[in-house]
């Protein structure tokens, strides 16, 4: 469990969460990046850049 950095809501962090994973706060809906697993550290998800895609 971690606190949303925007609304401080509770976010469940499953055991198989990976560094670099993008998760969504169930309370405010903001997307966050898991920048560290141990300890859990969240940051705002990066903004889409011009050369991003598939």
């Amino acid at each position: 469990m971690a606190a949303c950095i925007v609304c401080e809501g509770n976010i469940d962090i499953p055991e198989d969460t990976e560094e670099g994973e993008i998760i969504e706060c169930p309370e405010c809906g903001i997307e966050l990046e898991v920048v560290s697993i141990d300890p859990i550290e969240l940051a705002p998800a990066p903004k889409e850049e011009e050369d991003w895609g598939e």
């Binding site: 670099g20 993008i22 991003w52």
Partner: peptide, 8 residues
Amino acid sequence: SYVRFEEK
């Protein structure tokens, strides 16, 4: 870059 559904 990031870990999405696909990378998992």
